[in-house]
Design a protein around this nucleic acid. Structure first.
Lengths: 127, 127
DNA sequence: CTGGATCCAGCTCGATACTG
DNA sequence: CAGTATCGAGCTGGATCCAG
């Protein structure tokens, strides 16, 4: 077996199975369109719920709350509630969130650089 | 409006809308668990269909073919068929695929480094 | 071995309505 | 404004069968 494991350089001890399973879970959480777009949007700075709805084009109310909860649970975004009326809630990337943001930026950069290649490849494939 | 756009440093010309829409499409294609895991697996080198099924734990026959077609269409993997019997098909990352792989590796690295943080954050959140 | 096609249970997601 | 709850249409994805 070469890999089958997501994390490759961990010791073969008893915790390995648990760590790898956690890693897969995180991977599934994070490797989704909306989560990445939210992180990208928060990369610009703190945003409120309504601000995020504007920045992340096409996201529904439900998907936004759902993904925000997930990101908060994983410690990637910080949720700050001001007990005013009407309520005001601010979302900010945490330090680990910033780290993730760097890789999301890399993904955006890659996408940008390969737009042409991909368009060509598609044309070729569809023919 | 600050962003709303996935790609930020493109000129505001007529092609912008099209390019950004393509970028979003690519982003949705690629930002999915199975695609990333397949790319990660192919990072080790060329693999056959059955090899991929072994390397990418838990993927179904259908998801594997589906994602491979998508990756091929976008020019990220190369599909080489040997007209033998039984057939032999090899999948390899293309050059753009290699580029994407680098960012997937970064994501894996990030996951690895933040396992602890995330576990803690979850415990805190779930309480 | 690779992979297309079909079936359908289960989940996702958007719409809507309601609360503090 | 932010968030929860509910409902249902539609999509997803696994299982299975067939074919080259």
């Amino acid at each position: 077996m070469v890999t089958k494991r997501l994390l490759k350089d961990l010791p073969e001890d008893a915790d390995l199975r648990r760590a790898d399973s956690l890693a897969r879970e995180i991977f599934s959480d994070v490797a989704n369109k909306w989560a990445l777009l939210i992180i990208e949007a928060l990369g610009e700075g703190t945003l409120r719920f309504s601000g995020l709805r504007n920045e992340v084009e096409g996201i529904s109310h439900k998907m936004l709350t759902q993904n925000l909860r997930m990101l908060e649970r994983n410690g990637l975004v910080d949720r700050k509630v001001y007990p005013t009326v009407p309520p005001r809630v601010e979302y900010t990337l945490t330090e680990s969130g910033q780290g993730l943001r760097a890789t999301v930026d890399a993904l955006c950069g890659w996408t940008h650089r390969h737009l042409g290649h991909i368009e060509d490849a598609r044309r070729r494939f569809d023919a």
